[in-house]
Nucleic acid binder design. Structure first.
Lengths: 343, 343
DNA sequence: GCCACTGGCTAAACCGCTATAGCTGCGGTA
DNA sequence: TACCGCAGCTATAGCGGTTTAGCCAGTGGC
């Protein structure tokens, strides 16, 4: 068995070419200090010997670890069923692997564990930057990354923009798209099965629903908070549908809850879409395999992940970087779960 | 903004305690060379100064990178919806974080890209070990990890055991559990919507079904290959149910395909479980939110991930390690999607 | 009273790469 | 002719750990 340790080092190349290790380093990193002729020769030998930089050695010299971190602090039982973060991860990896960086994804139980992890990572120099997701009001992570001196990008607009670069889509506009559509179908009682209200994106959607509903003179657009689990999504649906003035349309903050809600409706003998319309804020296979398939907001999540990675690389290269990228508002994909009210 | 680089080093501790850096290293790593008194003092100061080892520095000294790799080579569109690997990842992380290691998970398009990635990782010293999943017949990765000198553990039994340590459950026995149950319900035509036949676990299940079916004198238990996508799962179901001698029970290799299959059955007006019983090989939220909920094999995937991590750590510590761990055969969880045949 | 041994430490080399100061030889300038 | 500047290198000092060789004082054996 060939030992891993036998791989060529810069010194090996130097010996073979007959120059100093420093010259090899110059050549391999494309910086001045060697003639074009020597550089070409060095590059050739390096390729021949199949040389690749030793990550740890580079990182030790003060350079980068070549890893960015992504921590998800949600109940992992509900997490795995969502494609959203898988696609984000995949999009990030596609962009980063071209720069020979990688994503370190970790699942933790709560924000406290997440913060702990960031401290560990920072002190061990494990990551060059972070992606913060599921932003909250007064999010403690924003101060933390400053304190740790770690470049970071938020996925979703933070409460106070301009503190960190972020990649975001307009949640209010997205909700408006949905209400527009439902109102056009004569729905007048629209409810919202939301996530935990601490999350800004959920709060923004709820606020947008309220303002849209009152602007159009519809009935109060209530948002029922949940923990994103299928169980609470189902319970919230059951509660809403048990009312005398039950909604004719429900908007769900996740595809998993929407699917669970659909199940509850069928169980209660409420026909979808005839007497109840269902819209999901997220798209995934899940929305397509249930019956009827769910009308939902759809976006190119892979591209979103790629954008996050690009922005983070900027932030790493230039710590003063603060620019935010607004991405396309998700577009509505109409499927079988929505129809005219009172159909 | 505090600079990341300001964190304490071993030299800082040494200065403060008044000993040499070497002594501090001995103390912190619990090896002989310092008195218990000095050791205690050093540990105290280290804790006080909030010292943590610089990963890169350790790795450079020939020690470990503190990272293990997990590569998934499947179409990421179908991947994200399965909880299986999310749970595996989570279980691994829980075990590894106690040893302050991390999992580097990466999604790639195919086995060629996976192999490429392993070569990159090995040459950059990025990982200390690998978890190989979705084993195939004549799997090229087994020779590769030998060549690269990378410790590895397979999740699932390889074609030729004893080449690498593995953590596995008995697929044949699992299929037998299902056939036992279905046969007891008088099902005589059992079909199988499988994954790609290159995967050993899928092949083993198909073989077990065939042998069980013939041993019991049931009708030929056909396995229809798919790519694990909901689309192909649906297509396979449609084909099976369109036959004159259509099966009364279908076993699916994944929860996603089972859910898609259920949708097709309902669409075709075939009642589940009255005229068709459905069993999924995998469990997840998905099997619980569809209606009827799916009978499925269930296992503690988190524990499985933990076991994989433990075994990999063994393999890293002792490269000669070859022991395999057989885990519990998944147990059948009966839900609403199965009933007596012809019921 | 001398030697061997040992516990507890220090000094220094080393891991692979980057960064910087310094050296060399050549052509051009005053 | 002496000097400068520059391209093109070499030598060397880190980065933050681990590891080995070696030093010194104390101790026990004979």
């Amino acid at each position: 068995m060939r030992d891993v340790g036998n791989r060529p080092t810069i010194a090996d190349i130097a010996k073979r070419v007959g120059v100093s290790p420093g010259a090899v380093s110059f050549a391999l990193n494309g910086r001045p200090g060697v003639s074009e002729q020597t550089r070409a020769r060095i590059l050739e030998v390096a390729r021949e010997m199949n040389w690749r930089p030793h990550r740890a050695a580079r990182a030790l010299g003060g350079a980068q670890a070549g890893v960015v971190g992504l921590v998800l602090a949600r109940d992992p039982r509900t997490l795995g069923s969502e494609q959203f973060y898988t696609q984000i991860l995949y999009g990030m990896q596609d962009t980063l692997s071209a720069r020979s960086s990688a994503v370190q994804m970790q699942l933790v139980r709560d924000t406290a564990a997440e913060i702990d992890l960031y401290r560990h990572w920072a002190s061990e120099h494990r990551v060059d930057g972070l992606v913060l997701v599921d932003l909250q009001r007064d999010d403690p992570r924003i101060a933390l990354v400053r304190e740790l001196g770690l470049p970071a990008v938020t996925l979703g607009l933070p409460a106070e923009p301009d503190q960190l670069p972020s990649v975001w889509a307009d949640d209010a506009e997205a909700m408006t798209t949905i209400v527009d559509y439902l109102a056009a179908l004569d729905h007048r009682r629209i409810a919202h099965v939301a996530g935990p209200p601490v999350y800004l994106h959920t709060a923004r959607r709820a606020a947008a629903l309220r303002s849209q509903v009152s602007a159009r003179g519809l009935h109060a657009g209530e948002s029922v908070p949940t923990d994103f689990s299928d169980a609470q999504g189902a319970a919230a649906t059951r509660a809403l549908l048990s009312r005398a003035d039950r909604p004719t349309a429900i908007v769900y903050d996740s595809d998993l809850m929407a699917a669970a809600g659909l199940g509850v409706a069928l169980e209660m003998g409420i026909e979808v879409p005839r007497t109840l319309s269902i819209v999901s804020f997220d798209d995934s296979v899940l929305t397509r395999i249930v019956h009827p398939a769910l009308t939902c907001l759809s976006r190119d999540t892979h591209a979103l992940g790629a954008q996050v990675a690009t922005t983070l690389l900027q932030a790493i290269a230039d710590p003063a970087w603060r620019e935010s990228v607004r991405t396309e508002t998700p577009r509505l994909v109409v499927r079988g779960s929505t129809a005219r009210a009172g159909g």
